[in-house]
Design a protein around this nucleic acid. Sequence first.
DNA 1: AAGGGACGCAACCGCCTCCTA
DNA 2: ATAGGAGGCGGTTGCGTCCCT
Length: 335
Amino acid sequence: MNQQQVVKVSKNKQINSEDDDDSSDLRRGPWTVDEDFTLINYIAHHGEGRWNSLARFAGLKRTGKSCRLRWLNYLRPDVRRGNITLEEQLLILELHSRWGNRWSKIAQHLPGRTDNEIKNYWRTRVQKHAKQLKCDVNSKQFKDTMRYLWMPRLVERIQRAATTDDGAPPLASSASSPSSAMNTACYSTAMAAGDHRRQFMLMPQYYAMTTHSNLMIAQENSSTVASSESFGSLSSELTEANYANYHQVINGADHQQIDSSTTTSYGWQNDFAINTVGNNGNSDQLGMGSVDDRRSNEQWMMMDDVDNGGSSDKDNNLLWNVDDVWFLQQFSSCF
DNA sequence: AAGGGACGCAACCGCCTCCTA
DNA sequence: ATAGGAGGCGGTTGCGTCCCT
């Protein structure tokens, strides 16, 4: 491993104008420990920026770009590495649905995560599932599937993970209360405790969608035959009544857009706060009908076979289980 | 045990915008 | 006003690792 290749930059090979080409050989490929140390040491003493001259003065046979990338994506002290959490997954899906492939913009709302990491996550995980569903990742079909099934499902998992982790009662029970005061109280408590998960779960729009997803699954589960007709009616109900409701919540006039100019320094947990506050914490938004949410939840749990708790890393990364994929294929065919 | 395909991720490429002299 | 340098960004690639047969 780490077989460093020292590549002679061909005179014929076009290199960027800003690249330092006065050195005949530039290193490429994986960085060595020594190079990392050199870069860290130099930045510690002189700060970052002016990457071309930095590379030169530090004695690194790398382009300025390469140094910058190595620092920003890997060596920076506040960079977070490792598994993308469920909360982060949900946020990525939400922000991507809003902004598309604006990776750096999305990354601004996930502290410590780099645009490269998010981009890789999207390509390796999300696009893989789109392929499984035999649809294009940019198609309306896939986006709807993501919005109405995947994201609510993630919220569901986050809720259960929270219950498992700290023994606290599921947030759904408090969030489903018609009392806006209670919702606000829960929110305040979460804020005070710095409990990001709870802040997240109090996002009205996601709670609503979770509830509706549960309803859909529950109805599907209770029917003897999962005919395309029954799916058709479900999706019809979804696209007309609740789609409108959902978008009213997400895109409504009083919904405060997440904007880096106002929230950059606060991080993602505060984005959630803004979302909630933007809706005035109005629990009316939570009511997606008169369905007994708790009962729906129970039925959902019954459907959820292989996911026994959903707290392992593997499970966190496993977006859909076998049943999910089967159901999604049925669901997708209705669009 | 070995080979090969799939996967994940670090790094590179090229284009674009911004800044500054 | 403009040209060139610097940095940012999204797309792509290469390679090490994992997993399955």
